[in-house]
Simulated assay, not measured.
Amino acid sequence: MPRTLTRRRTARATEAYSPAEEPEEEHGYADEEDEAPARGSRRGSRRSLNTEEDDTSSRRSRRSREDDDEDDEPAPKVGGKGWGSYEKTKQATSSFPDNFKATNESVIVHFLDEEPFLVFLQHWIERKGKKSFTCLESKCPLCDDAGDKPSQQVCFNVVDFTDPEDPQIRVWQVGPMVADILKNYAKDKKTSPINRDDLYFSVRKETKNNKTNYYITPVKERDLLDDWDIEPLTEEDLEEFDAKAYDEDILQVTRRSELKGIVREILND
């Protein structure tokens, strides 16, 4: 019986994000927007004012000595060199999630969600500047006035093992083709739920003659080390990644008035 870890999600507060303005097969892009102290017991509560003042003075003195000791410690090593340090500090300083993007090289991922945490419709408008816009669904100017058909976008939190020594949390935003593959795995008893702690997936894509195929293969935890030279995530690792997981708040929606302006721009071209 595969062991199943029950994890409690604490979604972190995030700002909405917008990935790079580059189209990719079966991948969409999220939109941007331009908005009484506790009582002690009776016993020992009778204390003289001088005793309280002495205790307060003593605590202040101890804190002062501790602060001095910390100041005397050698400075911690910070910073670094190379692209690895660049990516690490970039993620630490950015409130925007990084997208996972499949390539022609197989990469191991672990799902943090048993189902999509966000599903939305997105317009892609070929224009100078920003191209991706979240569909308003109801009374959407890009649908009603420009006649543009939006595409479905499906988002999952994954742990990306592109660098096995430094796995990172990413948002994998996919189209219906990949979503259908993942849905089938989610329904299969052998691979359900897809975020089981003993289950990983190998992901690769291949593009030929303008046609893209995705190869998504389950990988058991017991095979990770031997076949992929990757250490499985511990329960502590999983809890830490779960605490960093993104939720639907990452998506921002462009105001209807701005979308109407884009429609006018399209129609005037």
Results as ranks from 00 to 15, higher is better:
Lys190Gln: 08
Ser257Gln: 13
Glu137Gly: 02
Glu105His: 15
Trp172Gly: 06
Asn195Pro: 00
Trp124Arg: 15
Arg47Phe: 04
Glu239Thr: 01
Asp242Val: 04
Asp71Pro: 00
Asp237Ala: 01
Ala38Pro: 11
Leu182Trp: 11
Pro232Met: 02
His110Gly: 03
Glu73Cys: 03
Arg9Gly: 02
Glu73Ala: 05
Ala30Asp: 09
Thr56Ala: 14
Ile108Tyr: 05
Glu239Ile: 00
Arg60Glu: 07
Cys135Arg: 11
Gln173Ser: 15
Tyr200Pro: 01
Ser57Tyr: 04
Tyr185Met: 00
Glu221Phe: 00
Gly261Leu: 03
Lys189Glu: 14
Ala245Phe: 03
Thr217Trp: 09
Met177Arg: 15
Glu236Pro: 00
Ile108Asn: 11
Arg7Ser: 02
Trp83Gln: 12
Arg60Lys: 12
Cys143Asn: 11
Asp247Asn: 15
Ser18Lys: 07
Asp67Met: 13
Leu5Trp: 03
Tyr185Pro: 01
Glu24Val: 13
Glu35Ile: 05
Arg7Leu: 05
Lys220Leu: 04
Glu206Arg: 14
Glu25Trp: 12
Glu240Gln: 09
Ser202Pro: 01
Gly147Tyr: 04
Arg204Gly: 05
Pro150Val: 04
Asp227Arg: 11
Tyr17Arg: 06
Lys139Val: 08
Lys190His: 07
Glu22Tyr: 06
Arg222Ala: 12
Arg39Ala: 10
Ile125Asp: 03
Arg9Asn: 04
Glu114Cys: 10
Thr4Lys: 04
Gln91Val: 03
Arg256Gln: 14
Glu126Lys: 13
Val171Met: 10
Leu49Phe: 07
Val174Arg: 12
Pro23Lys: 13
Asn268Lys: 15
Glu24Cys: 05
Trp228Asn: 08
Tyr200Val: 02
Gly40Glu: 00
Glu240Arg: 10
Val109His: 08
Phe133Leu: 11
Ala36Arg: 10
Asp31Leu: 06
Arg7Phe: 00
